[in-house]
Amino acid sequence: MTTLQPPAAAKRRPDRPPAKRDRRSWTGWGFIGPFVAVFALVFLAPIVYSIYLSLFRDQLIGGTTFVGLDNYTQALKDEQFWDSLARVALFLAVQVPIMLGIALLIALALDSGRLYGKDFFRIVIFLPYAVPAVVATLMWGFMYGTKYGLVGDINSAFDVTLPDPLSSDLVLASIGNIVTWEFIGYNMLIFYSALRVIPSSLYEAAEIDGAGQFRVISAIKLPAIRGALVIATIFSIIGSFQLFNEPAILRPLARNAITTDFTPNFYTYSLSFNGQQHNYSAAVAIIMGLITMVIAYVVQLRGMRKGA
């Protein structure tokens, strides 16, 4: 901080009357004011409003009453909520490592400089991320169709019976497949850009020491992009916990497999919009937000512990 202060300003300060200092502190507010206003309006206000909502209960018979923390105690005992949380936790445990692993492999491959058509490859891998999630899910939903979709076409062309990707056993995996397809490119780009800023002198030193490619990866590249790995993991954790688009869009095709409490987000949506239980839904959403925050924070602490 002190090094940023121009020396001239420091010298002149004693000459100025104290009133001027006051105005100077207001100038600062003037600069961050627009941000604070927007932040308060679109960030803090909704959270405060949700907390406010979560303290009431609105019934079809009896109207709105203040219930304190009742909604929270109810949510903590709500099996449907915990089931949905378990489902996304399973999703997180399986899908995120696969997605990040593939993204990392591709990033390392692109960075190795041994690939022909690197730029083309990079853009093609990234392209699915540019497709809006809704469109992507609709497209995959069509491909998953066992009757008139791609799976159905394969079945009739080769006279086989592939398992139905939208059956209750497979639907979570099918959604994982869509999400992996969508986000490999995005994560690859994070890793790749982190790899690009590693100074080449390190590689030269490694070469002089006689390190092979794998040694370079494990001793230089991976430690150097640790921060990027942690960030991508945190984004993926948040993304998994917030899973909503894919189940919501696939649901008309698989109503029995994708229940209205399939993911925590979808459960809050159903509570709010099918059951008109806005207050309870707000409580569930806040609990879910807290859980996500805690897990993301733990990952960040552990991930960064040895980091710079």
């Binding site: 109503r255 029995n256 229940t259 209205t260 409490d261 159903s270 099918n274 059951g275 008109q276």
Partner: peptide, 11 residues
């Protein structure tokens, strides 16, 4: 509402 959870249960 009941119809909205039909597929969760009878489904």
């Amino acid at each position: 509402y009941a119809n909205s959870i039909f597929n969760d249960t009878v489904g």
